[in-house]
Design a binder for these strands. Structure first.
Lengths: 235, 235
DNA sequence: GATGGAGTAATTGGATGCAGAACGAGCAGG
DNA sequence: CCTGCTCGTTCTGCATCCAATTACTCCATC
């Protein structure tokens, strides 16, 4: 799925499979912060041995999605509100780059593809929360991929997943209603607009998403103490 | 090898040690793109088994510093000029965030610390290239750390290492001469300046670094094979 | 009923072993 | 002299195994 740069890839890596599976589960809220991810349970779920599961956890920890402490069961990361703020700031910076590179350069088929995603978002707006978040994230990731800049794409993808985790853990149940029309407007502005306008609109959009989801502040009271204390333990 | 190898607490970080060691070796140009990193050799060098070395390679691959292809010996990544351009764009975006958060908020001791690094850069300006790149990178990383935003810091650190790799492989021998005065000016502007000014100065600085180091590389397109392939040979 | 502690089960950290793929030397042929 | 093929060596992919540490349960105690 990631960009194929030069030499053909298509490695049937089981490791990527596991990573992607867990990423999606986290993104959709199926896995919540603090949930435990024991190595052999994981391996058994995915039909591989602990070795692979272990490796996958290492990767996901590097991406900030899971927390790994010595001799302890891996858990889904629990971003603090400060983390979420940090993540969204970075996301704004990166996605501004995306739309600046894209502004005025979208092909018709690309526009169509993006609009198809928004359509799917529209269809899913009354479904489970996870689907909305996943589709909204997909929209942004596809946008990044269209720049054909693999490194930028990688970072945008990563930060989008982290943002998704923040939303599903700290955010209110739902706020995608407005995001849909904003996505449509975004497509249009990117398609024709000057880079600055598109960049600004993306920044406003992401800021709005963050505000709607996170500004509520109280969030939901955490399910257990460890989530509250986790940021203070590791150092 | 002579490290404290007793059981107990501080033995936690063998993996981080390897990662950091390789990162620095790459940053300083001791390891060049295409250099092979066999798991056995790595493990032996660091006095651990393949398992750890393997894990470390996985991490570094996730950071984009090494390339990992199935059943093939890991190699130091070989960024293309396009990759380098991409990396520097991202770096500009991220470091603008850094200075925007920092502008007007630097303490005296922080200023002193940064100036100390620049002093070290000055001392090292006629030494080996690696030292200059390492110190310049350290300057930017410390700057990021001062925001006390761990996630932003992580990304800046990562992108700085990648930029360093690009410089040491694609860049000209020396370009640190001007960077030193620019770093000093940067400190001053961040210390007192408005966020916009500091942000712009950082962008200009990084753009200048990229231009000085990379713009020369554009000229040689398919000139002769040995010149093109020399970075891929590993000598 | 709540608290603290010991013993057992569960889980991770890491090493090793084995199968298979890639690398490279050496040889045959143009 | 250069190109293509074959085969032994090297290296990775992965599973399994053992030691060390943690998590959990149960019981004694306050």
């Amino acid at each position: 799925m990631s960009a194929a740069s030069k030499t053909g890839k298509t490695e049937n890596d089981r490791l990527s499979m596991i990573c992607q599976g867990i990423r999606r589960a986290i993104l959709e809220g199926a896995l919540m912060p603090g949930d435990r991810l024991p190595e052999d349970a994981l391996g058994e779920s995915f039909g591989v041995s602990r070795t692979i599961a272990r490796h996958a956890l290492g990767q996901l920890a590097a991406e900030g999605l899971v927390e790994l402490r010595r001799n302890r069961i891996a858990t889904v990361s629990a971003p603090t509100p400060a983390d979420a703020r940090d993540i969204f700031d970075i996301r704004v910076a990166l996605e501004r780059q995306v739309v600046q590179h894209l502004a005025g350069n979208l092909t018709d088929s690309q526009v169509a593809e993006l609009e198809a995603i928004v359509d799917a978002e529209h269809d899913a707006r009354h479904g489970p929360d996870g689907a909305s978040i996943r589709l909204a994230t997909e929209f942004h990731i596809r946008l990044a991929e269209m720049t054909r800049k693999p490194i930028l794409t990688r970072y945008v993808t990563e930060i989008c997943y982290r943002a998704g985790l923040s939303l599903s853990s700290l955010g209110r149940p739902h706020s995608s209603e407005c995001a849909i029309s904003e996505h449509l407007a975004l497509i249009d502005t990117i398609r024709r607009g000057p880079p600055e306008a598109a960049s600004q609109m993306m920044a406003d959009h992401l800021e709005a998403v963050a505000s709607r989801a996170l500004l509520s502040g109280e969030g939901r009271q955490t399910r257990d103490l460890s989530a509250i204390l986790s940021p203070y333990i590791g150092g």
